[in-house]
């Protein structure tokens, strides 16, 4: 399938992308790796009249350390996040999550910023950012703002990004220790999680257990209060309202959340 016609603009810088967004308003869509937007445009689920390509804006890509944080440019592709020595040593959970996205070809094109802005509740990176307590750096006509991952995801495929704003980078606190776990339950290669769990330090994030990546707060509080891993994990599905689909009904997803949380808290990777 071929997308409906659109006007194409290649942004030359972050500032240029913002100008183009301001000029074209809500009819415009940013294009990063295109691995969520192009499939949606082929299916006419998205029909932007203007596409602003930020895929080759150099200042938006790259990974650097900044004090206690790593800063990852929005258009850094999943493969580069997964392979980065800095990410692998300082926030191994994030490198692991990036390596779980789709397949090698998808990881060469899809970007961290695109994945977060797309905000699929079943996706890997939104869950990872919530587990790590990361934040989003956003530029818009009113200047810059930073939004914590906990507040960024507003609903099913919805974020606090405004149509004239650009996600420029992602900020992740260093979490170099071995006390993290990652569980992605799938039935097919290169698929999204039926349920996913990422745990780091005392934080636990769940994928596909609601319209946004959610924290398993009851389990986190139990852990903080000295409960065993098994007892804390038994509370992982409390307060969740997962959707039902051909892969799983609500009760099965909640069961998976408890089992996978226990494994993640035991620092298993899978």
């Amino acid at each position: 399938m071929i997308p409906a016609p659109f006007q194409y603009e290649a942004a030359e810088s972050a500032g240029h992308a913002l100008d183009l967004l301001a000029r074209h308003g809500e009819d415009a869509k940013l294009l990063a790796g295109g691995h969520s937007l192009l499939p949606m445009m082929k299916l006419r689920l998205a029909v932007p009249s203007v596409v602003i390509d930020i895929g080759r804006v150099e200042e938006l890509a790259g990974i650097r350390a900044d004090g206690d944080d790593l800063v990852i440019g929005a258009t850094t592709c999943h493969a580069d996040v997964a392979a980065s020595d800095l990410v692998r040593s300082q926030t191994p959970l994030l490198a692991y999550a990036a390596a779980q996205v789709g397949d090698p070809q998808i990881r060469h094109r899809g970007t961290i910023g695109g994945s977060l802005a797309h905000a699929d509740p079943a996706a890997d990176l939104p869950m990872a950012l919530v587990a790590l307590g990361g934040s989003m750096e956003i530029s818009g006509p009113a200047g810059r703002r930073t939004v914590a991952a906990d507040d960024f995801f507003a609903g099913f495929f919805e974020t606090s990004l405004q149509p004239d704003e650009l996600l420029t980078a992602v900020r992740v606190p260093r979490h170099p220790g071995p006390d993290w776990g990652y569980q992605k339950f799938v039935r097919r290669a290169n698929d999204w999680a039926i349920v996913g769990v990422a745990a780091a330090g005392g934080r636990i994030a769940l994928a596909n257990m609601g319209p946004v990546p959610v924290r398993a707060t009851a389990a986190e509080q139990a852990l903080a209060g000295g409960a065993s891993v098994a007892d804390a994990a038994a509370m992982a599905a409390e307060g969740t309202d997962p959707a039902e689909d051909i892969h799983a009904d609500r009760a099965y997803r909640q069961h998976l959340a408890r089992v996978l949380t226990r494994r993640a808290l035991e620092h298993q990777k899978g």
Binding site: Y8, A10, R109
Partner: peptide, 30 residues
């Protein structure tokens, strides 16, 4: 498949494998 799944359309972009059914020709400029 035309849906980024099967890999039959794989080509190299600057030496890296990509699925050319999920990329616009204009994205390959330069």
């Amino acid at each position: 498949c035309d849906t980024t799944s099967c890999g039959a359309c794989t080509v190299l972009l600057n030496g890296k494998s990509v699925k050319s059914c999920t990329m616009l020709a204009v994205q390959a400029a330069g």
